[in-house]
């Protein structure tokens, strides 16, 4: 496995993978993170995966850079003992357009598509969550159809509602909390991406999960939103094994 290790200040170390950013690399990074946890390296404070790197935060008075470097260097996840990871697919209901997606028309016009085509194309792929960042629970999704790529808005909105689904360049994403933002908003999900009352899974998404959008109408959206507010709506999850077959469907206890 090809990676380099660099100090990031005196309390962190970055493992930089040299391959291209692909779903395969994302899976390797996930296995790599699990291995660091299993080995309990330097009682790592935090492990933060990104597109093609993993940053490990540690306490320099518990382990030195030299020692953590030597331990990380030995990690080999290419050998056959590394079992394929199970992967979760989270189904995300979206009401497209109208007051929930004020930029849907704009995205359609920019790409010379009909609104209906935009909605269909947006639901087509299973998006891979490469990493979380920007805001608590915000997923960086890979896999948007290039036909839907649309530049960021010239004048960002002062406030975008929580749950808003947007497009910026070749990315699509979901705002977990109300925030200023410059993405083109095409719809909204009633799901809560962050739910601090859920002690076990306060976050709906994790790096390495898949996301599949499906359209709901306004009535369904409002029902789901009400249920979600009362803590009675759970996202639909599927556990996939790595060959893509659905192992089982479940109404998981996430958010």
């Amino acid at each position: 496995m090809d990676f380099s290790i660099k100090a990031v200040g005196d309390c962190a170390v970055k493992v930089q993978f040299l391959q291209d950013v692909t779903p395969q690399l994302n899976r390797k990074i996930k296995i790599f993170c699990n291995r660091i946890t299993e080995l309990n390296i330097g009682s790592a404070v935090e492990i933060v995966p990104a597109y093609n790197s993993v940053t490990i935060y540690y306490q320099p008075f518990k382990i030195t850079y030299r020692d953590i470097y030597n331990k990380l260097k030995l990690i080999n996840i290419d050998d056959s003992s590394c079992k394929p990871e199970k992967q979760q697919l989270i189904k995300v209901p979206v009401v497209y357009g109208g007051e929930y997606g004020p930029d849907l028309q704009g995205v359609a016009e920019y790409n010379n598509l009909s609104v209906k085509e935009v909605i269909e194309l947006h639901q087509k792929p299973d998006y891979l969550i490469y990493m979380l960042g920007f805001l608590p629970g915000f997923p960086y999704l890979g896999g948007l159809k290039t036909k839907l790529a649309t530049p960021r808005m010239e004048n960002p909105r002062r406030s975008v509602s929580a749950g808003s689904v947007g497009i910026a360049y070749k990315q699509t994403g979901i705002y977990p909390v109300e925030s200023p933002g410059g993405w083109n908003i095409i719809g909204r999900t009633p799901l809560r991406l962050v739910n601090l009352t859920n002690q076990v899974h306060p976050f709906l998404f994790e790096a390495g999960d898949l996301v599949r959008f499906y359209e709901v109408d306004e009535v369904e959206f409002l029902e789901m939103e009400e249920a979600a507010a009362a803590g009675k709506y759970n996202a639909k999850l599927e556990i996939l094994n790595r060959k893509g077959a659905s192992a089982n469907d479940q109404q998981a206890n996430r958010s």
Binding site: V8, G9, C11, V48, A50, Y51, T55
Partner: peptide, 10 residues
């Protein structure tokens, strides 16, 4: 650069 984790003091 590809986005990565950013530390206190970066």
């Amino acid at each position: 650069v590809w986005s990565d984790a950013i530390p206190f003091g970066g």
